[in-house]
Every structure is written in structure tokens, then in C-alpha cells.
Design a protein around this nucleic acid. Structure first.
Lengths: 345, 345
DNA sequence: TTTTTTATTGCAATCGTTTGCGTCAACGTT
DNA sequence: AACGTTGACGCAAACGATTGCAATAAAAAA
């Protein structure tokens, strides 16, 4: 049924030359007469010849494909990262095979396996929330597979990491809230095992310290799931139970922040007059809600692009992984919108 | 640097048998002694042997990989579709290679090319807004490549399409608005060349007709881009210029609908009291904004899953493409939220 | 003991492409 | 006339796995 693709052999047979000659003619190797080159190229075009990438991969032991492992595509930030990855990979002649772990460790493992089977040239990884041990990655690194981690990066030796400056982003966000006159600031924190969560919390703490505000551990609450529902419930219970009601929320992520906003409104609190809110990630909806949500923007596209460039540089040996000691940290940008501004500028 | 993967030959050499024996032993073929099988499997495990999928692909002229071509990952709906695709492909032992066209025709073309080079087993396509001519797809179909189109489907013979019932979704949404007492309903339409846009518009028209409401062509406005900014601008200019202000908006997509909501609010109109609004796609933010946005939910995950199942069935010849005459149409669900309810239930 | 059967394994080709090396004829040089 | 050059091309192996067809030895049957 399926029409067979023309191969080099087909061209060779038709022209009564050997496959070697065809191969060389197509690549303009020296030592092939112009006449032959002409005929070969002509026939190749006519037959719509397309090199078989699989055969090439086998021959070269390289697939020109990189594997991307991420938690979820539906996550806005990750989808922008994917765009960045795609863009660079594409322009440098690589394919991207993608798998989501859905935050499951076993998915992560088996994704790695099938990618290895497919002779992937390198990995781009943001690990799952379930992943607390990094042996499976260390092993790959030891075997010499190029891996670049992004956003969610492990703390293992030799790992090459691309991340955003979560600490600074959080620090800026909280500092902004403080200068707007908020002082009892809740932090809706992320899962403790993610370094990004730790860093954001550290930024929160340091900002408070910096302004001489005592840290109240009751105001730091973990939101393990990271949905707006969860944020809403947690905020409601905080508002109900805390002796002294908080006057601001810094969300580890935008969903949690929106949840907080909804819960505050439901409790009759005005945003930003009574309560200031800042999120993290700058999802598209931030500017679509009312009041619009201030948020720390992460350069997702850029992160994907940078990570991919590093990976490909390593793959193509333009760069020695041993020499890439430091992690690449990208700047965040605090986008101040209405939800956190109560002073006239 | 990179540690070589163990191959069948390695096992064969070490055990002083031929590669054929190893191959057969690994697959439990009859005619290999239990003793040999044991030794082979043992060594395979020890060497962490993993079959080389590339070599297999070359041999079998199949890659166990399907190519997915979509406009944008950042689009919520498409990201849910991807999840559905991934889920099914993964469970049936296929890989997914993904490319976004960013709504560009030339990207679409070159994606197809590289996928063909990579001996993809089949295509899953939602074409770009720029695509107005489907020859490149017809050619593939003629050559016998399995293709399943989803969401944005072309009208070409033999094409296998999976889509949602855009007509019914729109019909339901507009009917709902009418029964809520809105009558001058604007339709923020999509690009005319997309069938989904045409269908949604048709649903809009038929719902009005069905309730005996005359169609005012001035109330049908195309939103080619589909961002909230665009929706906002268009709505503002409608509110400024129409003699008779409209009392409802049915957005071809949620972004446009949110834009309309923002513009209405800015013009001092109350939602839903003065203006009713319904969107399409049910992005996550629909329930996070105020008032929450009614929207027609599309079964994205399900669509991805179904499309992939059909594709794989065709690839594996479980199904004859000639026999799949009709397009598969999935039901939508109107989620009524606050933005369109002004009657007490 | 000779022949037939059965169990176990190996050979070699194949998938499409690349590439080091060899071949062979035509030409130029002395 | 004998030799070296050079231009144009083919041979064959390799990448890793599969598989139809032998092949070999041991066991069973005659």
C-alpha cells in the first residue's frame, strides 16, 4: 500500500553506477565528474529522494534527536520552555522527542529507558515532584550522556543546570510588597523537595529580614499540589484561624496566588486595599483577571533556548562539560500590576 | 568518553555463540537450549543490554514513532490534546515527536519533511492558520502515509478527522444566552479559513434563527489573532460605534471572550447583569476570573487519545483507512458560570 | 552398524548510508 | 616504449538486529 521511498540504491541502479558514487555525487564530493553529479542530482529530485535518517543514525551512532522530559505540558511555564527548546533544536537540525512524567517517578524512569533505546543524543530534564533521589541521572552522567537540567535542577556533581534566579525573584516580590506597606505576608510555599521552592522561600525570608520584619513560621504554608483550589482552601483556613489576619500573600506560583485572591474576596477583603498579592510565573491569565495579578515573570522561552544551546554545544563537542562548572541563572522580572499596589506612585 | 552501549554482538562474543543465537535466546525462540537462554539473559542483564531501536527501525522499516504537528503548545487546548496523545502512544509502545508550526505554513512543510526523513509511522496533524491549501497533505495520503487530523481538519477526500462538535457547542452556548434573556449577541468569530470557525459561526446563526432572532451581520466580527488584547480592542470599538449596544458576547475562544469582558467592564457595563459572555475552550482561567466565565469545554485529552488510537489502529492494520469514512465527532459541554447567568435558577 | 530424526546453533543476507582503499583506463613525461 | 599521474568510479565492510536456510552433532530408530 505504502509507496516506498526512493533510496540511493534506486538511483544507482537506474543510472548504472554504484551507491558510493551516488552518495558522493549528492554531497558534491571531489572525484566525481560533473556529468555524473548532474545526472544523479537530477534523478534524485525527480524521485523525490530523501535521505533515510534512520540509516544515517545507525551508521553514525547518532540520532540528531534530543529527549525532553518534563512534568506537564499543560503548565504554562513549561509550554513556553518547550517553545524555546523547539526553536533552537529545530534551527540546528535536531528533532525533539517529548515525554511528560505527570510528576511520576516511574514515568521518568521509563522515559529515560525508551529514549536510551532510541539512541538519543542528549537529555533535557526537569524532574518530577516525586523524584527525591537522583541516582538514575547520576548513572547517565557517569556513562557520558549529555544532560542539561532546567528549572527543577538536582544538586549532583557535574550536573549542568539552567535555572531562573528564584531567590532574587522572590526577594524582589516580597520587598515590593513590603514597600507597599504590607507587613504580615503569607508565603504559599511549594513542595519542599524542589530546589526552586526552597530558593523562593529563602528569598521570602531574606526580604523580610532585610526590612527588619520578624519571620512568623505560621505564615509559611506548603501548597504541595499547586492548584488554585488548594490555594483557596489554604487561604480560607488561614483567614479563619490566624489570630492576626495577614495583609499580603506571596504565592510560590500563580495558581496558588489566584486561589488566595479568590478566598480573600470571598472573605470580604479588598485587593489591593486590604490585601496585597503577588504570584510567580506570570501565566497568561495574570493580566486578564481583576485586579490584575502582579507576578514574577520567568523567561521560559529563553530558558528552553539556552538549555538547548548548551546541550547541543556539549553534544557537538563545542564545549567540554567539565568546563561548564557554574549553573546558568537567568534573571526574573517582577511585573507589578494592580493586585499589589496601594500607594500612589 | 561516552560508554558504549552493549550490543548483541558483545554478548555473542563473550559467550562464544553467534548473534543469531543471542537474538533468539533473548526472545525465547524455540530451538535454543534452556542453558544458553539462561546464560544469554544473565549476561544481557549484567551488561545492561538495551536493544538498539534505530537498528530495529532500519530492519523493520518502521520507527514506532508518530509525528505530531500542532500550531502551538502554549495553547491550553492543544496542551491537553498532547497529554492525550502521549498517554495512548506511550502505552502502546510508540514515541512521539512533536513540532509546533507557530501557525506558519513553511514550518508545517519542513516539519513534514524531517518527519518523513525520520521514517515516522504516521502523522497527527492540526494545521496552521496559514494553511489554505492541502496539497501537501493529499500527497502524503496518496503515498499511503497514515494521517489523522484533529480539531483543525481539512476537507479533503480520504482524510480521517477527529473533531469536536463545534456547531453544537456554539449552538448550545448561544441558545443559553438567549434563554437568559440576551438578544443582541455579538459573535467574536475566528479565522474564516478554519472549519472550526465556520462551524461555530454556523451554530451561532442557527441558534439565533431557532429563536426567531434576526441576524445582524454587524454583530459578527472576525478576530484573526485570538488574543485577549484583540478581543478587548474589537469590543471597545463595537461598544463605541454600534448604534444599539449589544447585550452579549459569544467568543470563538476564551481569550477573545475575556477581552470582551474587560472592555465591557471598562465601559461601565456590569457582567452578567448588563452583558452576558460565553467563551470557547474552557481554559483554566475561566473559573479564576470574576465573574467566572461560562465556556464550551472541548474534550482535549480525549480528542488526543482518540486520534492516536485511530492512527495506531491504522498503522498496525487493525483497521482499514478506507473503511473509516465518517469523521469522529466528540461532544462538547457547556459549562455555565457566572458571566452568563442573570436569571434566578 | 547404518539411517533417520531431533535438538541446537551458525551463515549470510538484509535494511540504507558512508567511506577507506583499490582498480583501471587515459593521459603526460622522459 | 616504459613509466608515473590523475581522474572517475566500484568494492566491501560497517552500524545492530532479524530470519530463512543450512549445518552439525547427538539421539533414536531400523
Amino acid at each position: 500500500m505504502k509507496i516506498e521511498q526512493a533510496t540511493i540504491k534506486d538511483i544507482a541502479r537506474e543510472l548504472n553506477v554504484s551507491s558510493s558514487t551516488v552518495s558522493r555525487a549528492l554531497k558534491d564530493y571531489p572525484g566525481i565528474s560533473d556529468e555524473t553529479k548532474r545526472k544523479v542530482k537530477e534523478l534524485a529530485k525527480k524521485l523525490n529522494y530523501r535521505p533515510n535518517a534512520i540509516a544515517l543514525s545507525l551508521r553514525k551512532s547518532r540520532s540528531f534527536t534530543i529527549g525532553v522530559i518534563i512534568p506537564e505540558v499543560v503548565h504554562f511555564f513549561f509550554s513556553t520552555v518547550i517553545s524555546g527548546i523547539e526553536e533552537v533544536a529545530y534551527s540546528r537540525g535536531y528533532n525533539v522527542i517529548l515525554t511528560q512524567t505527570n510528576e511520576k517517578l516511574d514515568r521518568e524512569q521509563s522515559s529515560i529507558d525508551t529514549m536510551l533505546s532510541n539512541q538519543i543524543d542528549g537529555f533535557l530534564v526537569s524532574y518530577s515532584k516525586e523524584t527525591k533521589d537522583f541516582n538514575h541521572f547520576s548513572r547517565l552522567l557517569d556513562q557520558g550522556y549529555p544532560i542539561v537540567f532546567f528549572d527543577r535542577v538536582p544538586e549532583i556533581p557535574n550536573a549542568i543546570n539552567v535555572m531562573v534566579d528564584d531567590y532574587q525573584g522572590a526577594f524582589d516580590a516580597v520587598s515590593h510588597l513590603i514597600t507597599q506597606g504590607y507587613s504580615r505576608i503569607v508565603h504559599l510555599a511549594g513542595p519542599k523537595n524542589l530546589k526552586i521552592s526552597q530558593e523562593r522561600e529563602r528569598g521570602y525570608r531574606d526580604a523580610l529580614k532585610n526590612y527588619g520584619i520578624a519571620i512568623d513560621e505560621d505564615l509559611i504554608v506548603e501548597c504541595p499540589i499547586g492548584t488554585s483550589d488548594e490555594g483557596q482552601k489554604i487561604t480560607k483556613s488561614l483567614l479563619d484561624n490566624l489570630k492576626q489576619t495577614p495583609d499580603a500573600f506571596f504565592g510560590n506560583n500563580d495558581m496558588a496566588a489566584v486561589g488566595a485572591m479568590l478566598a480573600c474576596k470571598a472573605a470580604g477583603l479588598r485587593v489591593p486595599e486590604d490585601v496585597g498579592i503577588v504570584g510567580f510565573s506570570n501565566w497568561q491569565f495574570c493580566s486578564m483577571i481583576e485586579p490584575s495579578l502582579s507576578s514574577v515573570a520567568q523567561p521560559g522561552f529563553n530558558m528552553g533556548a539556552k538549555a538547548t544551546e548548551m546541550l547541543l554545544d556539549i553534544i557537538e563537542k563545542k564545549v567540554n562539560p567539565e568546563e561548564v562548572k557554574e549553573a546558568l541563572t537567568l534573571e526574573t522580572e517582577l511585573l507589578v500590576r494592580k493586585s499589589s499596589v496601594r500607594l500612589k506612585g
